[in-house]
């Protein structure tokens, strides 16, 4: 009950805050919300199920390109679910192969698949625009009458997607299946002894994770009107890992706060220095060294045990 109220309060706060946000931050927070959906998807695989993937950019890009290419000839209302499904289908396909491995090998296999995906996008340059990507026309970005290139509808759409994703995430981790996912993370052998199928559980978790990532990619394409190969690059597989680690792996709200903090950390530091990669690198090191549980993970440890 307390947890549900907290999450509803966050959604309410994000709804209220748009009245006071200046235009620059208005766009940024919308962006952070979409990226937070991506981070939540990553968290389902990494934080709850213990699958450290280095290839989530593939799922994000699958959603992004499926939607971006489909809006050329179909309404956005149809292209958006297509992108979501593309993310999930890609995750399912990768999972069927990659989940035969575990640990370090799993990381390398996902990394390699994502790299192959990135190169494939470059290879089919005439269709995908290669390195430069392509821009979506304003008319293509009308979602059921909402003009997503305008600030207001964009923020509200982002909030709607974020809100649904957040509550679904909360429901998932509190369900029986969510507990089985955590069991896989904590002790795979013991869960197998108790009669749970590790492969099946992990595959479902990874597919859900791909669904979230694809949703984020599809929404990002529609809301910001740009589809590019850089979103499929290794950088975009590392970033959600960073956000989740910062916010707290295995917490529902962690990905959002991690994405928010990291976004503004890079944003602020870019006015001081152009060494944004340094910020990312140092943040990763500091996190694994001194705060492996992240912000919300630490709060949960220090008293708020009920935090989901």
């Amino acid at each position: 009950m307390k947890a549900l109220a907290l999450h509803l309060a966050l959604i309410g706060a994000l709804l209220a805050v748009q009245v006071v946000l200046p235009p620059y931050h208005y766009t940024n927070v919308a962006r952070v919300m979409v990226l937070a959906v991506y981070a939540m998807g990553y968290n389902i695989a990494f934080g709850y199920t213990g699958l450290l993937s280095l290839g989530h950019a593939l799922f994000f890009a699958a959603g992004m390109y499926a939607t971006g290419l489909a809006v050329h000839s179909a309404p956005a209302l149809l292209a958006l679910p297509l992108g979501m499904l593309a993310g999930a289908a890609m995750a399912l396909a990768v999972g069927l192969l990659a989940l035969r491995t575990a640990g370090v090998a799993f990381m390398i296999v996902t990394l390699m698949f994502a790299q192959a995906g990135y190169l494939t996008i470059l290879y089919y340059g005439p269709v995908t625009g290669g390195d430069e990507g392509f821009v979506l026309a304003r008319e293509a970005r009308m979602l059921a009458g909402l003009d997503l290139s305008a600030d207001g509808p964009r923020y509200l759409t982002a909030l709607a997607i974020f809100g649904v994703a957040l509550l679904a995430n909360l429901a998932l981790v509190r369900s029986g299946f969510g507990r089985v996912m955590v069991a896989m993370r904590e002790n795979e052998e013991r869960s197998r002894m108790l009669g749970y199928d590790p492969f099946r559980t992990k595959l479902i978790a990874l597919t859900l994770s791909g669904l979230y990532s694809g949703t984020a990619g599809a929404a990002y394409a529609l809301m910001f009107g740009y589809v590019g190969a850089s979103f499929a690059a290794i950088q975009y597989s590392i970033l959600p890992l960073l956000w989740v680690l910062l916010g707290g792996a295995g917490t529902v709200l962690g990905p959002f706060f991690g994405a928010l903090l990291m976004f503004y950390l890079i944003d602020l530091s870019s006015s001081v220095t152009d060494a944004s990669n340094l910020v990312v690198g140092v943040a990763l090191l500091v996190l694994v060294l001194f705060a492996p549980k992240g912000i919300l993970g630490t709060i949960r440890e220090r008293g708020a045990r009920w935090l989901p």
Binding site: I238, N277, L278, G281, V282, L284, L285, V288
Partner: peptide, 22 residues
């Protein structure tokens, strides 16, 4: 720890690359 060291060496990668660039 295998997983933590991968994350740490990714961080190291970014730091070294940026240092070389700067």
């Amino acid at each position: 720890d295998p997983e933590a060291t991968i994350v740490a060496t990714i961080g190291l990668l970014y730091i070294l690359q940026q240092a070389a660039l700067s």
